[in-house]
Nucleic acid binder design. Structure first.
Lengths: 331, 331
DNA sequence: AGCCGCTGGGTAATCCTTTACTCGGCGGCT
DNA sequence: AGCCGCCGAGTAAAGGATTACCCAGCGGCT
């Protein structure tokens, strides 16, 4: 594979000049630049990334560690990050932590080892692995979930408020026994959505019963089982707040199997406005989160931090929007 | 940041020994290994990836370049690749080419520059950028779509046959004017699905009309518009074969807007068994593609090629499964 | 005309790890 | 007892790009 020396030899200049010409650095004689360019093309020269990064002590790459590639919420974030990063010449590598602290940890190690310029991640909860980034001085931004005590840039959604509003909406629609199916304890968004749900019940002077609440992994299968259980009780809920769109799939499945009609029999509001939400019958009421925007904001914060590591940490909280559709209306 | 020399100094050995101890290479005195280990932990030593890759002339990373992160078909492939790669200590970085030859090309350049061990990609169609990989001797595997003339490992789905079967199913159900909404010309899967559709019509001695066929980008928006158009014609289709799940969203939306009931009024079969397919009303008939398996197979082929670049190229064709649900049955 | 300063480009150090080569020492065999 | 061989560990080279430092030459100013 052609190296910079080969290019230099062919162009009849030194390697330093080749480097300067190709990187558009200092002022180089336009004639030489042209000669270097043609030589590079002729040899199909591709700079050796590791060598460059070794010398530069940093790669023009940002790592994005998300907890589930199959969740449209996170892939939308990914798009936002990509669009901003590409504008300024950074590449984005996507890593799937799969909601596992072990994998997250592993990817953080890799990010550090590869000397990426920065990391954007949705933390699984354990703070320890993120501390390594802070210790190394690697720029990072947390999205979707805050970090326990780390003060860093964070981009959040006011998910507790959104959950409260969604629950209030269900109350306003006349549902009496409202339940909640949310993610695992310890995952901040899951906790917040549950808290928002309770806020609404309390404000409406409703008793909240633990029998109406289920926690499970943020996936369809877990939610399916949870819904089956909660609906098979003596006094089943007549409405459910569901904490993400994958879970909504499981819940709707369970309803279908039991012949329960969403809206009419059991009101449903789910988080995340999946593309199919309006297509089910009745259309699914959702809390739409600004996922793409989370990505763009996080990327911009990260880039700012890369260039100036001393900026005081900021917390950006974006709002979510309740979209009322048929699944939360009786009749 | 601590380097290998720091570890060596602290452990009282040479850098060579540290390297050997940490990589479990040759036989090193267990005492020394222990000393090196503790020293490394104490200093929080993380090897410098670029330096390592520079020396090794290769990174234990495979790049996965897919054409749409937001398409569940591709994210399922990603999971398959990840699971296999991680087993053998490789990391996977995901790159989103967004169906753009430019971005694909850019990511391939980056992959070459970073000296990744191999590349798995769903080619956008232009062969040129892939040739660079071949020229460099970088191992690569194509998934979902074959490469024009490059002979390399390929993992495909027999999508033409699947399209034919899906169309035959619609014919058997008594639909008369069957249309097809597929992806852009030049994208192989889109072409194949159209070809399979035509195969079925021809075999059934049906006339195929170009008025019933629409091609558009593989997204909801394009399919939505296409469906609106095709259904507003004088003699609209009474069934549609839709080439992926994102497009199915657009088509179902269009039907909903026009008050047309899937199945009863217009039969629908779509590619890709999205998690929500069974939830819409009526449940969506689909062609389920073995996406996860494509990923695992591709990853195994890639690993084999990384270790032995001389293996003859293979083509693996997996089957798809038609799942009949309500949207392709009258009444 | 001579000197100073600036500019463009070359030389060589540097980034950090891996690994080929080498060497010392010890044990076993004759 | 002496020699050979082997094992374990150290020394130093290599990998390729960037960049600090330096030098040559030219132009302008006095």
């Amino acid at each position: 594979m052609a190296t910079i020396s080969d290019v230099a030899a062919l162009a009849g200049v030194s390697t330093a000049t080749v480097s300067r010409a190709l990187n558009g650095k200092a002022t180089v004689d336009p004639d030489l630049v042209a000669r270097v360019r043609t030589a590079a093309v002729q040899l199909g020269y591709q700079p050796n990334g590791p060598a460059r990064n070794l010398r530069r002590q940093e790669a023009a790459v940002v790592a994005l560690i998300i907890s589930d590639v199959e969740n449209p919420f996170f892939t939308a974030i990914a798009r936002g990050v990509e669009d901003v990063a590409h504008e300024v010449g950074y590449s984005v590598v996507l890593c799937n932590s799969d909601e596992s602290a072990t994998k997250e940890n592993r990817y953080i190690d890799i990010a550090i080892q590869e000397r990426v310029a920065g990391v954007i991640l949705s933390p699984t909860g354990t703070t320890s692995s993120v501390e390594k980034l802070a210790a190394r001085g690697t720029a990072f931004v947390a999205v979707d979930r805050p970090l326990p005590q780390q003060d860093s840039d964070v981009v959040l959604v006011d998910t507790r408020l959104a959950a409260r509003q969604a629950t209030e909406h269900l109350i306003a629609q006349g549902y009496q026994r409202i339940g909640c199916i949310t993610g695992p304890a310890g995952v901040r968004t899951a906790d917040d959505r549950l808290a928002g749900y309770r806020d609404a019940l309390k404000a409406a002077k409703r008793r909240s019963s633990t029998k109406l609440v289920r926690r499970t992994e943020y996936k369809a299968a877990g939610a399916h089982k949870a819904a089956q259980e909660v609906l098979s009780q003596e006094e089943p809920p007549d409405a459910l707040l569901v904490a993400n769109s994958a879970m909504a799939v499981g819940v709707l499945q369970a309803l279908q199997e039991k012949g329960i009609r969403p809206g009419q029999d059991v009101g449903i509001v789910a988080f995340d406005d999946a593309p199919w939400a309006a297509l089910v019958d009745p259309p699914l009421s959702v809390v739409a989160q600004p996922a793409y925007e989370i990505g763009t904001v996080a990327a911009r914060l990260l880039l700012a931090r890369i260039t100036d590591g001393t900026r005081p940490p900021t917390t950006t909280t974006l709002g979510a929007r309740l979209i009322e559709r048929g699944s939360s209306h009786r009749g």
